[in-house]
Design a protein around this nucleic acid. Sequence first.
DNA 1: ACGAAATTCTCATATTGCGGGATTTTAGCG
DNA 2: CGCTAAAATCCCGCAATATGAGAATTTCGT
Lengths: 276, 276
Amino acid sequence: MDRMTASAPGRPGAGETSVTRVLGILDLFTPEAPVWTADTMIEHLLLGRATIYRYVRALCDAGFLVPVAGAGYALGPRFIEFDRNIRLADPLLHIVPPVMAELRDTVAGGQLLCAFYGLRVLAVLQDKTDPDITMSMERGRPFPLFQGSPSRVILAHLPTYRLRNLALNHQAAIAAAGLGQNWAEFRDGLRAVRRMGYLVASDIDKALVGISAPIFHAPGSVVASLCLVRTKERVTPDDAAYLGRLAVTACQRISAELQAFRLRQTDAAFPVSRVR
Amino acid sequence: MDRMTASAPGRPGAGETSVTRVLGILDLFTPEAPVWTADTMIEHLLLGRATIYRYVRALCDAGFLVPVAGAGYALGPRFIEFDRNIRLADPLLHIVPPVMAELRDTVAGGQLLCAFYGLRVLAVLQDKTDPDITMSMERGRPFPLFQGSPSRVILAHLPTYRLRNLALNHQAAIAAAGLGQNWAEFRDGLRAVRRMGYLVASDIDKALVGISAPIFHAPGSVVASLCLVRTKERVTPDDAAYLGRLAVTACQRISAELQAFRLRQTDAAFPVSRVR
DNA sequence: ACGAAATTCTCATATTGCGGGATTTTAGCG
DNA sequence: CGCTAAAATCCCGCAATATGAGAATTTCGT
């Protein structure tokens, strides 16, 4: 009943396999509850003691969990290592920082680089100057797929067949986010965004305005977005338009470098997500 | 035969379970080979096509893998999210940055915070001023357990029974690292380090000197070390002694804050690794 | 060194994973 | 926008392997 595996939405309690259950254990570990004892897991997952210990042992051996003093387990070092592996392999993290540095003074607020991962949009890089903006430890922060300018500008540049899939599988979330009650509305709204080239929105943090433009891994294939952020009272309509153009040109440069980088690579190997 | 699961050393090919195999898939994904196709995995893991696809699907659903354009899979967003969760729950990352900032000008080189995770030591935070020192994207960088001042100063402060375990299970690695041919030598060498309070070494990067002191989560329980780094030619013996004392006092402050933090927490819940 | 608590082991049972191949879906082209 | 090669899923019998209760063992802090 607590199969709320944030990871496999839309498929409620289906496909109960041992692998699923083991991976499900990791879902327990949140910032609010970072330590779990074996007994607590047994209670919450309704599994036998031996089974839980088998699972936990497998995860510990692999470094995904770590026993902590005082009896309990916490997320292990392997996640930190893998995040580094991802960072090392991600050309965006080499290309974007200098661009962010250039924009820093003009933006006079904050910047966020968000990557598109199939059904998820994640902050992967940040840059901040305005102390009024609370943005820290943002890498890894998830963004709702249908809210916020970083996500929506990415959506707007997805190929039609992907959008159609999304519209079919997530129409409730789309409607809830005000992106349209049906396929036509959804598509037309995004088309308008695409025509504009950038998106100004204030729907995640009402005190902030985000101005986002898309980054392409290849012509017609979005992988990320750059979001320029300012507090609301410091953005006039003219500012928004100016920052929008700024974001678009910056993203064009980033995209160009990304494609140049990709051509340099022998085996074209840079993560670009697909929707299933 | 390619059971080189970096995660469970000492237990070569034992305990082949489906969970082990699924987690083993993730071991394939290295910075050098960040993208794998289903067929390549089948080749390397000698599993049936349907099985690999089942495994990969489970990992994708959980966000640990992501399908990439051009047919293949790469490490997924979940690792980035979990690393953030760990960062958010780790009091060291709140306590240490201001200390590093204070030391920055005096150290005039680099600083590394390394955490102890059972059998692994990992960089978790860095700070650099000297451009001659190449240190970037260090969070997540693994350190050999028996080499380098960050690891060895941690070892030196482990309780005896943990050291005895290590000596039993890793005597080859210990000898290879020059930490002694037997238990007595190993223990005595570390005791000397413990007496000194800090450790000066240059065994990982020969061009650099690292000066490390231990950080305690509770009296007698090491969880991390702070390593002050300079290029070798900029460290006289007097410098080393001075930086050593500097590191020790900084670490004492950090430890005190850590324990104060721990007392504030309702449910004592900060990851401290144990050795099995 | 000791004792309480945490973890692993044992083993019979039947649930669940495996694999070869047919089928469906997908991506990206013209 | 429809099509085609390629990728991913489904099917299903067989048997390997996961499960859980409780006993045995190891671990860790005092």
